[in-house]
Amino acid sequence: MQIQNETKPYDSINVTPMLDLAYVLLVVFILMTTASVQGLSVSMPKPSNKPSTEKHELKVVQVMPGGTMLLNGVPVSAQQLESELAQAKARDPKMSVAIKGDARAQYAQVVTVIDLCNKLEVPMGLVTSRIGT
């Protein structure tokens, strides 16, 4: 009996490993492009190198869960808040307001304080806290 050791050249190329590599590269490309698109671009103010020597009045308005508003820790109504902020602005035109809204407070109360500050043309900022602090 004779064994034939006949080696024929391959007529076709196995492209399965090449397609596997192409699919992996496609998945990596899709993941990288969607990860870069999801972020928001925010232009943050740059700090100045010189410390500010000006001292201006700062009022802290807290909106509590029940709708109660506190001005520097003292409960006030919306009318009292408006008059207190107007008096403070008359004393110091560059005074500002920091608004602290409790997470359980109704958003409408926070918007009321923001509208009041806009009406009186008082600079304001929203106080936030990081999760876990």
Rank of each mutant, 00 (worst) to 15 (best):
T7Q: 05
K8Q: 00
P9M: 07
D11Y: 08
S12W: 08
S12P: 02
F29T: 11
L31Y: 08
A35D: 05
V37N: 04
G39V: 05
G39I: 03
L40Y: 14
S43A: 10
M44H: 09
M44R: 12
P45M: 00
K46G: 07
S48W: 04
K50C: 02
T53F: 14
E54K: 12
K55Y: 07
H56D: 12
H56Y: 12
E57S: 14
L58R: 15
V61P: 02
V61D: 06
Q62M: 11
Q62H: 12
V63W: 00
V63T: 08
M64W: 03
M64K: 01
T68I: 14
L70E: 14
G73D: 05
G73T: 11
G73V: 07
V74C: 02
P75Q: 09
S77Y: 10
S77G: 13
Q80P: 07
Q80V: 07
L81Q: 13
L85A: 02
A86Q: 06
Q87T: 14
A88T: 13
K89V: 08
A90C: 03
A90Q: 15
P93M: 07
K94R: 15
M95R: 01
S96G: 15
V97L: 05
G101H: 06
G101V: 13
R104Q: 15
Q109V: 11
V111G: 08
V111T: 05
L116F: 09
C117M: 03
L120K: 04
V122R: 02
M124I: 11
L126H: 14
L126E: 05
T128C: 07
